[in-house]
Simulated scan of single mutants.
Amino acid sequence: MEPAEVTVLVHRAAEGDQAAWDAIVDEYAGLLWSVVRGFRLNEAQAADAVQTTWLRLVEHVADLREPGHVAGWLKTTAQRVCLQVIRQGGREQLTDWDEDRGAGGGVRDDGLDEDGPEVSALRREQQELVRRALADLPDRQRQLMELLLATPAISYQEIGARLGMPVGSIGPTRARILARLRESLATAGLQDLALR
């Protein structure tokens, strides 16, 4: 597709034209999947990375400096999302206390938070606001988020089977729920809390 055609599509999508969005997704879905597959993420992580990239486009479509080059923007964004997934995955691994001692910002062996009581209290308050925002979701949405956040990770096929939901609708539904949570948390004063 020529850059001029893409520019028209992006402008129409920014104005809310569903047909333009569909054309953009049809044109670039394969590109996103090929980028994400290159990072060798598991199935759920890969699907989340693709959906997060689309969500970022929805959030920034009106701000694109070069709408005719949306393919490059999508590719770069997908790479950044994948790197973030990999970094977050690394943080979830258990480490030996001696290895972590010099890093700072953790919990000491006496149970006290090294960041200090103010940071610890703020973190607890933020966690409570996130829990409340999740609790305020309709039951089906809350169940979906609980399954998506389960450890160990549950495949999209299993989540679909448990909720009676098509696998292809899980990612878009997740994106809508996250947008709703972001809005709810922004209202509560947590604009800087990342739900990415």
Rank of each mutant, 00 (worst) to 15 (best):
183 E>Y: 10
167 V>F: 00
131 R>A: 08
91 R>L: 15
196 R>A: 04
8 V>Y: 09
120 S>P: 00
19 A>E: 11
193 L>G: 06
1 M>L: 04
50 V>W: 08
75 K>N: 05
23 A>D: 08
35 V>E: 14
155 S>E: 07
182 R>T: 01
120 S>L: 00
98 D>M: 10
116 G>A: 09
166 P>T: 01
43 E>G: 06
33 W>I: 02
120 S>R: 08
129 L>R: 12
16 G>S: 04
178 L>M: 13
70 V>H: 11
36 V>G: 12
85 V>K: 13
52 T>F: 05
93 Q>F: 08
130 V>W: 12
86 I>W: 05
103 A>H: 15
191 Q>L: 10
23 A>G: 03
117 P>R: 08
175 A>P: 09
130 V>P: 07
5 E>T: 09
136 D>H: 12
92 E>D: 15
7 T>Q: 07
149 L>R: 14
79 Q>F: 02
7 T>V: 01
5 E>G: 13
46 A>C: 14
23 A>R: 13
34 S>Q: 12
2 E>P: 01
71 A>I: 02
26 D>A: 07
12 R>K: 14
1 M>G: 10
188 A>T: 03
90 G>T: 11
23 A>V: 05
108 R>M: 13
39 F>D: 01
102 G>C: 12
36 V>M: 15
109 D>K: 07
10 V>P: 07
6 V>S: 07
39 F>K: 14
47 A>M: 04
181 L>V: 07
146 E>G: 05
91 R>Y: 11
90 G>R: 11
81 V>W: 14
67 P>L: 02
146 E>F: 06
153 A>R: 09
65 R>E: 05
182 R>S: 02
125 E>V: 01
159 I>C: 03
193 L>H: 13
57 L>R: 05
144 L>P: 00
134 L>Q: 14
92 E>M: 14
122 L>T: 03
142 R>E: 08
135 A>W: 08
149 L>N: 10
96 D>Y: 09
108 R>G: 08
143 Q>H: 02
107 V>L: 13
143 Q>T: 02
164 G>A: 10
9 L>W: 11
